[in-house]
Design a protein around this nucleic acid. Structure first.
Length: 435
RNA sequence: GUGAGCGUAGCUCAGUUGGAUAGAGCAUUAGACUGUGGCUCUAAGGGUCGCGGGUUCGAAUCCCGUCGCUCACCCCA
C-alpha cells in the first residue's frame, strides 16, 4: 500500500463466471450420482479411462466440426510455450478416441468399452444447468455397429437415473442418417425451405445456409408449423440406416424402455451418424437435457484412424443433480435426503489436562476404523455436546477430571440420553461391538 | 455474443408516496442448566443497503454509469 490511494481496495476473489464450488452439503448428491454411475458402468463391462483436461486444439476442430459453435466461439484455447495450440476439452468423446488410437488399442481388441467422469469446459453464457466448467460422465462403446449396442448405452443411462431415484425423465430418439443419406435429405429440406424463406424467422433464414437441420427444432411457432409440413428424415434414410433405426426401436420395446421418436431431434456435433438420443427432464427449464448421445461411425476415421464405429453418451452431472434436487424437494425435506456423513463417536473433554488423553482415544478409535471427532476450539462441555448433536454422533465419550482420575470414561447414547461408565482400556472393544 | 430481471446480515427476505439509530425469521455465539445435546426462553455479535457518481435539505428508495448474479436467446450436457 502506498498510501496515495485512500479508497479501500477490496480483494474479493470469487469463483470465475460460470464455475461453481461444490460445497460439502452438496456432495451427497454428487457422490451418489458418481457412485451409482461407476457401479452401473462396471456392471455393464465399461472400464474407466481418464484423459487429460486439455488436448491439441486440432483434435476438437477435426472431430466436433469446424463450423460448429463449440469450435467457433466456445473453446478455451491458448498456446503454451512451444507454439502449439491447446484447448481445454469441451467434451470427452474425442479425447477417448484419441487415446484408443494413440495406444492402438484396436490391434489387441477391437471392441472395447470405456467410461469417464470429469470436468469439461465451454465458454458460454451461464444459464440454469449450464456452466463454463461442467461435469460429464459418459461411456463410449468402441468398435461395433450392432444396433443393440446403441440400445445398451441408452439402458445404461436410464438405469442410472432410475437408481439415483430420478423420476420423470423422457427418452427421445431419432436417426440422422449416415454420410450417404443425410446429404440427400439435407438438399431436399433446404430446397423446400428456401421456397418459404420469407415465412421463416430471421434466425432460421440464416440457418438455411449454416445449419438447415436446426430449423427443425426452432422454437418460433411459425417455423414450427412450416417444419412440421416438411418431409421427415425417416423417409429418406438409406436401407441400412432404416433397418438400423428399426432394430433400435424394436430392442427398446423388447427391454421395456419407453421412448419418444422425435424426427426433429438434431445434433450440434458433426460426428454423429444414425442413432441420436437425448434424455430430458421437464423440471429443468429451457435447457432440459440431462443426457445426450448417439452413434458416431465416422469419428475415428475423421481423426485419422481406421473405420471403426462407436456409440456413447454423456450425462450432464450438474443438470442431473439439479433435476434430482427438484424431484426430491417435492417428496421430502432436503436435509433428510442430503445429510453429511456423521461420526459414530464424539469425544467431549472437560478441562485442559484431559485433552491429551482424549486425543489419544480419538486416534485409537480412528486407527480401528471407527469414525470419531472432537473439539479443537476449547469450548465448554455444553458447546461440545451441542456440536456432537449437530454432527449427528451416535455416542459421546465424556472425559473430565473425575474420569481421568478413575481411568474410565462416560459413554452417552445420544438417542436415549443413557450414560454408562466404561474403563478406558475397554473402549476400543466396546465400540467395535457397537458397530 | 444478444435481451430482460435482480443485487439490503452467513442464508431467505421485509423496508409504505425519498424522512430520523436499516428490520424479521433461520443460522451463529452465550446464558437460564457454572461437567452434558435435541425443546423452550433470554441476550449478543453480525450491514460503509454490490460499487462509483448525480438529483435532493435529506437516498436502501429516484437518475446515470459500472461490476456481479439470474433467466431466456444463439448453441449445448
Amino acid at each position: 500500500m502506498n498510501g496515495n490511494n485512500d479508497k479501500k481496495t477490496e480483494y474479493v476473489f470469487r469463483a470465475p463466471r460460470g464455475t461453481e464450488d461444490i460445497l460439502p452439503e452438496k456432495w451427497t448428491f454428487w457422490r451418489r450420482l458418481e457412485a451409482v454411475g461407476r457401479q452401473e458402468f462396471e456392471l455393464c463391462g465399461y472400464y474407466e479411462i481418464r484423459t487429460p483436461i486439455f488436448e491439441d486444439t486440432r483434435l476438437f476442430v477435426r472431430s466436433i466440426g469446424e463450423a460448429t459453435d463449440i469450435v467457433e466461439k466456445e473453446m478455451y484455447t491458448f498456446s503454451d510455450s512451444e507454439d502449439s495450440s491447446i484447448t481445454l476439452r469441451p467434451e470427452n468423446t474425442a479425447p477417448v478416441m484419441r487415446a484408443y488410437l494413440e495406444y492402438e488399442l484396436y490391434k489387441t481388441k477391437k471392441f472395447q468399452k470405456f467410461y469417464y467422469i470429469g470436468p469439461q469446459f465451454r465458454k458460454e453464457r451461464p444459464q440454469a444447468g449450464r456452466l463454463r466448467q461442467f461435469h460429464q460422465m459418459g461411456i463410449e462403446a468402441v468398435g461395433a455397429t450392432d444396433p443393440l449396442l446403441d440400445v445398451e448405452t441408452i439402458s445404461v443411462a436410464t438405469r442410472i437415473f432410475d437408481r439415483i431415484g430420478l423420476k420423470g425423465y423422457k427418452v427421445k430418439i431419432n436417426s440422422i442418417g449416415c454420410e450417404k443419406c443425410r446429404p440427400v435429405f439435407r438438399n431436399i429440406l433446404k430446397e423446400k425451405l428456401c421456397n418459404r424463406e420469407e415465412e421463416l424467422c430471421e434466425l432460421c433464414q440464416s440457418r438455411l445456409n449454416r445449419n438447415v437441420f436446426r430449423i427443425l427444432d426452432c422454437k418460433n411457432e411459425k417455423c414450427k408449423t412450416i417444419s412440421h409440413s416438411m418431409p421427415s428424415i425417416n423417409d429418406y434414410l438409406c436401407g441400412e440406416c432404416q433397418s438400423h433405426a428399426q432394430a433400435v426401436r424394436e430392442a427398446l420395446l423388447e427391454i421395456g424402455i419407453p421412448y419418444i421418436a422425435d424426427a426433429h431431434l438434431v445434433r450440434g456435433l458433426d460426428y454423429y451418424t444414425k442413432t441420436v438420443y437425448e434424455i430430458t427432464h421437464s423440471s429443468l427449464g429451457a435447457r432440459d437435457a440431462i443426457c445426450a448421445g448417439g452413434r458416431y461411425d465416422n469419428l475415428i476415421s475423421d481423426i485419422g484412424g481406421p473405420p471403426i464405429g462407436s456409440v456413447g453418451f454423456a450425462v450432464g452431472m450438474e443438470a442431473t443433480i439439479l433435476a434430482l434436487e427438484n424431484v426430491i424437494a417435492k417428496s421430502k425435506p432436503l436435509h433428510e435426503e442430503a445429510s453429511l456423513p456423521s461420526p459414530l463417536v464424539y469425544i467431549v473433554s472437560i478441562g485442559e489436562e484431559t485433552k491429551k488423553k482424549c486425543f489419544y482415544l480419538l486416534n485409537l478409535l480412528r486407527k480401528a476404523d471407527i469414525s470419531a471427532d472432537f473439539d479443537y476450539e476449547g469450548r465448554s462441555p455444553k458447546a461440545q455436546m451441542r456440536t456432537a448433536n449437530k454432527v449427528g454422533a451416535k455416542y459421546v465419550v465424556v472425559l473430565g477430571p473425575d474420569e481421568l482420575a478413575r481411568g474410565d470414561v462416560k459413554v452417552r447414547m445420544m438417542e436415549t440420553g443413557e450414560e454408562i461408565p466404561l474403563k478406558q482400556s475397554e473402549i476400543l472393544k466396546w465400540f467395535q461391538e457397537q458397530r
